[in-house]
Simulated assay, not measured.
Amino acid sequence: MDSGAIRRRLGAVLGVLTASGLLALAAPGVAQAADPSSCSGRKIRTFTFSTGSVRLYKDGNYLCAVTAPNSGGGKRPMMVSLQARGFEPVVDKGLFAQHAGPVRSYVGHRKVWIKGSVGRGSYDSGGWKRY
Results as ranks from 00 to 15, higher is better:
G86D: 12
K115M: 15
V16Y: 07
Q32C: 03
L82Y: 04
G11M: 15
R104P: 07
D124M: 01
A65T: 04
V54M: 03
Y106P: 08
K129F: 14
R85H: 09
L25K: 14
Y62E: 08
M1Y: 11
G29N: 08
V16T: 01
A31Q: 11
G60R: 01
G60H: 10
Q83C: 09
A34T: 04
A33T: 12
D124Q: 07
G60Q: 06
R110S: 06
D124R: 00
L95Y: 10
G11Q: 15
V91A: 04
E88P: 13
V112L: 01
N61Y: 00
S105C: 12
M78K: 05
H109E: 14
A84M: 08
K111S: 13
Y106E: 10
R42V: 13
W113I: 09
G21N: 03
L14I: 09
G108Q: 01
N61G: 12
G126P: 03
S20N: 11
V54P: 00
K129E: 14
S81Y: 06
L56Y: 02
S37Q: 13
G126V: 01
A34Y: 03
G41P: 08
S40K: 10
A24M: 13
G119Y: 07
G72E: 02
G72R: 00
G15T: 00
R42L: 10
A12M: 12
R9C: 12
S40E: 11
R110G: 07
V80G: 03
S81C: 04
G60T: 02
S38M: 02
A19G: 03
